[in-house]
Each structure stands twice: as structure tokens, then as C-alpha cells.
């Protein structure tokens, strides 16, 4: 991988996401049992864990899509669960969310998918300005030639990249990736991993990457947070987690293939 995360762009003085004592359950099922996490400006952090371990729930809470049962989630200095309406919208303009299944609007073509969040949030933009912004975002993901295509005409990897471009159009400070490489072939995975790093460098974003793909975590992230039984077993460099003696961590790594 030629693009490795650059340590020097991380500003450890500035926390963009701070999570303290986060709990979330659905009925009888306790998903998150006291999560603590800090994401620094410019940093990429991967949240690893088994399917159903609550990784996606965590980023949905960060994005304000779910309310926590207990605990504090502070994003860019704002306590997310206390925000409503316009305050929440204002914060969300600084957060990009890449969905596991891309969540592209089926009825719109690629241009419309990208222009939609822009024109809905920034009024009085000229057609030329919208065109420029769309082309710039598509250029960032390398899919300028797909501008007129419908989501149904794109491959899985292309849909993911268009999904990322749609979030980039609003120039977010924080990127939340939900399983960015899930269901993709190894070449598309490598392209997405390179894109995550490209986004970090070009847009100076800080990112939380939810994945169970160790290659993605190793190649794109500065730190890894290992989620076990609703808690972070350990947050640290990839090698620190990898060398852990914990049986569940060892099993997780053993059954994954590291490129």
C-alpha cells in the first residue's frame, strides 16, 4: 500500500470525538456496555469486532441517528444526544457517513445523488458552482465518467466510492465509514483502502472506520479499537492489539486473512 496514514497530520491536542461511559441496549440485548473513546483531529481509528457486536450502533450514535441509554458523546465540542433540529443539522454538515450498502438514492443518477445534499443545504448556488462541486467530489473518488449513470448501473465498489463522494461534497471534518470494504473483491477493497487514506490527506478528515476486515484496519488506521462484549478490550496500534494474549482477540485475528 503506497498511501500510509501520515502520523504528522494528527493533532493530539485536539479531540474531535470524545465518548464517555456509553451504554446502549435494545430490549434485553445489551449492545454497548460502557464505551470510552477519543478521536484526535486528523486521526483514523478502526473499530474491530465480530458481526453484531455493536460497531454500527456506535457510529449511528455518533451521527445522532440513535440515542444512547447512558453516557456522553461529544462531537466537535457538541454533546450529540442533547442536540435537536437545526443544531443537529449544523453539526451533521461536518460529519460524513459512508453506509455499508452505500445508501445511494435509487431514483437519482450519480450527479443528482451528489448535488442533492449540496443544494438542499446551501441555497442560491449557481448551476456552475454545483457542477464544479460534483465534479471535484467525483474526481476525488476517480469516477468522473460515471456522472450520468444510475446507482443500479454501478458495481459494488463504484457504489461505495460514489457514496463516499456524496459525503465529501459537503467537505466534512469527520468521516464515519460503516464496513467500507464489506462484500467487495480484494482489488476493490484495496481501492477503497487507498481512497480512505486519500480522503484523510486531501480533506484533512478524522475518521472512525467500522470494519471486521483486518487488512482495511491495518492499512488505513492509526489506531485500532477492539470491541468485545460491548466494551473496548483495548485501543492502540495494530501490532499491540495483534500481539494480545486475549483468546477472543486471538480467535478474531486467526480467522481473518491479513494481506
Amino acid at each position: 500500500m503506497k498511501n500510509k496514514p501520515i502520523e504528522h497530520i494528527i493533532n493530539r491536542e485536539e479531540t474531535v470525538i470524545a465518548i464517555h461511559g456509553l451504554y446502549k441496549s435494545f430490549g434485553e440485548l445489551n449492545v454497548l456496555n460502557g464505551i470510552d473513546l477519543r478521536l484526535y483531529r486528523g486521526e483514523n481509528i478502526a473499530v474491530l469486532g465480530k458481526s453484531g457486536s455493536g460497531k454500527s450502533v456506535l457510529i449511528k450514535i455518533i451521527a445522532g441517528l440513535l440515542k444512547p441509554d447512558q453516557g456522553e458523546v461529544i462531537v466537535l465540542g457538541k454533546q450529540v444526544d442533547q442536540l435537536q433540529g437545526k443544531e443537529m443539522d449544523a453539526l451533521r454538515l461536518h460529519i460524513g457517513f459512508s453506509f455499508q450498502n452505500s445508501a445511494l438514492y435509487d431514483s437519482m443518477n450519480v450527479y443528482q445523488n451528489l448535488a442533492f445534499p449540496l443544494t438542499m443545504n446551501i441555497k442560491n448556488l449557481s448551476r456552475k458552482q454545483v457542477d464544479y462541486a460534483v465534479e471535484e467530489a467525483l474526481d476525488a473518488v476517480g469516477l468522473k465518467d460515471k456522472i450520468k449513470e444510475l446507482p443500479a448501473e454501478l458495481s459494488g465498489g463504484q457504489r461505495k466510492r460514489i457514496g463516499i463522494a456524496r459525503t465529501l461534497i459537503l467537505k466534512p471534518e469527520i468521516m464515519l465509514y460503516d464496513e467500507p470494504t464489506a462484500g467487495l473483491d480484494p482489488i476493490s477493497c484495496a481501492e477503497i483502502n487507498a481512497l480512505i487514506i486519500e480522503v484523510q490527506q486531501r480533506y484533512k478528515t478524522s475518521s472512525v472506520i467500522i470494519t471486521h476486515d483486518l487488512t482495511c484496519a491495518k492499512n488505513t488506521c492509526d489506531r485500532i479499537a477492539m470491541l468485545i462484549d460491548g466494551k473496548f478490550f483495548k485501543v492502540g496500534k495494530f501490532d499491540e492489539i495483534f500481539s494480545s494474549d486475549n483468546k477472543q482477540v486471538k480467535d478474531f485475528f486467526t480467522y481473518n486473512f491479513i494481506q
Binding site: K60, A63, L65, M88, D89, A90, R92, L93, I95, F97, F99, Q100, N101, A103, L104, Y105, D106, F116, P117, M120, N121, R166, T167, L170
Partner: peptide
């Protein structure tokens, strides 16, 4: 397909 959530996170 999470398109409604995608609108929400785009501040729409």
C-alpha cells in the same frame, strides 16, 4: 436500504 438515514446524516 438506509436511504432515509442517508438524508438525515446529510442534514436533510
Amino acid at each position: 436500504t438506509e436511504q432515509i438515514e442517508a438524508m438525515e446524516v446529510s442534514a436533510i
